[in-house]
Simulated assay, not measured.
Amino acid sequence: MTAMMLDDSEASDAELIGRARGGDRGAFGKLVERHYGFVYRAAYRWCGRKADAEDIAQDVCVRLGRAIRDYQGNGAFTTWLYAMTLNASRDMMRKRARDTAKADAYGAYASIAGEVPADDPADALWTAVRLLPDKQRDAVLLV
């Protein structure tokens, strides 16, 4: 068992993907563990809230479990994973907009508390980026 863990930690993404596509749960778990931080950071930059970024990252992990067999390997795995993260982020924001519209239609007050530490200038920048139109925001986040 220890040899298997060493193999997983030293295995390339391509090896882990191949094994995960074949149903190896350990390889899939290592792949998720290896890239979870990347997914979380991309989600946080897109939505700006820790709780939402965690929800998006978890959603991406679930989607990855269903979609790993469809990964063709034509591009970098992280590029594919990034696109999946952006799609999950957009889906969450659309759902939030629908839920807010429903709540407003029934006269309910819907508010979302922001998490903006006052001492971090990077947060002000990301807040401004999130106010851009979708395509411009995506371009900035890609860079």
Results as ranks from 00 to 15, higher is better:
residue 70 D to K: 03
residue 75 G to V: 11
residue 107 G to F: 03
residue 54 E to S: 09
residue 135 K to N: 12
residue 70 D to R: 07
residue 25 R to K: 15
residue 52 D to Y: 00
residue 13 D to P: 08
residue 92 M to Q: 12
residue 2 T to S: 13
residue 12 S to I: 03
residue 87 N to I: 00
residue 48 G to A: 02
residue 13 D to R: 11
residue 42 A to H: 06
residue 123 D to R: 12
residue 113 A to Q: 13
residue 141 L to V: 02
residue 81 L to P: 05
residue 41 R to D: 14
residue 64 L to S: 02
residue 101 A to D: 09
residue 57 A to G: 02
residue 13 D to W: 06
residue 46 W to C: 15
residue 140 V to R: 04
residue 139 A to D: 10
residue 94 R to L: 13
residue 34 R to M: 04
residue 143 V to P: 10
residue 95 K to S: 11
residue 1 M to Y: 09
residue 20 A to P: 05
residue 143 V to H: 12
residue 79 T to Q: 12
residue 141 L to I: 10
residue 107 G to C: 01
residue 46 W to N: 14
residue 82 Y to S: 02
residue 42 A to Y: 06
residue 81 L to M: 07
residue 8 D to F: 15
residue 60 V to E: 01
residue 53 A to F: 00
residue 16 L to P: 06
residue 36 Y to I: 05
residue 63 R to Q: 12
residue 106 Y to K: 15
residue 15 E to P: 09
residue 107 G to I: 01
residue 83 A to Y: 05
residue 4 M to E: 15
residue 133 P to Y: 15
residue 69 R to F: 06
residue 132 L to A: 00
residue 83 A to I: 06
residue 53 A to L: 00
residue 97 A to G: 04
residue 16 L to A: 08
residue 93 M to Q: 05
residue 128 A to E: 10
residue 126 W to D: 01
residue 126 W to Y: 08
residue 87 N to S: 02
residue 81 L to D: 05
residue 80 W to L: 08
residue 121 P to Y: 05
residue 76 A to S: 14
residue 7 D to L: 14
residue 16 L to D: 03
residue 23 G to H: 14
residue 127 T to M: 07
residue 47 C to Q: 12
residue 69 R to W: 04
residue 59 D to L: 05
residue 11 A to N: 07
residue 143 V to A: 15
residue 11 A to L: 00
residue 139 A to V: 11
residue 101 A to W: 08
residue 2 T to R: 10
residue 106 Y to R: 15
residue 107 G to K: 06
residue 85 T to Y: 00
residue 93 M to K: 04
residue 120 D to W: 10
residue 114 G to M: 12
residue 63 R to G: 14
residue 24 D to C: 10
residue 39 V to E: 02
residue 87 N to A: 08
residue 109 Y to E: 15
residue 20 A to S: 06
residue 50 K to Q: 10
residue 46 W to I: 14
residue 97 A to Y: 02
residue 36 Y to E: 07
residue 83 A to G: 07
residue 119 D to S: 12
residue 17 I to M: 03
residue 12 S to N: 00
residue 75 G to Q: 11
residue 122 A to P: 02
residue 117 P to E: 10
residue 135 K to P: 05
residue 112 I to D: 13
residue 123 D to I: 04
residue 111 S to W: 12
residue 114 G to Q: 14
residue 28 F to Y: 09
residue 55 D to K: 04
residue 37 G to P: 13
residue 52 D to Q: 07
residue 9 S to Y: 00
residue 52 D to R: 03
residue 78 T to Q: 13
residue 36 Y to M: 07
residue 122 A to E: 15
residue 2 T to P: 09
residue 50 K to V: 14
residue 98 R to H: 01
residue 6 L to F: 13
residue 75 G to P: 02
residue 100 T to A: 04
residue 127 T to E: 05
residue 52 D to C: 02
residue 4 M to V: 15
residue 1 M to R: 03
residue 73 G to V: 00
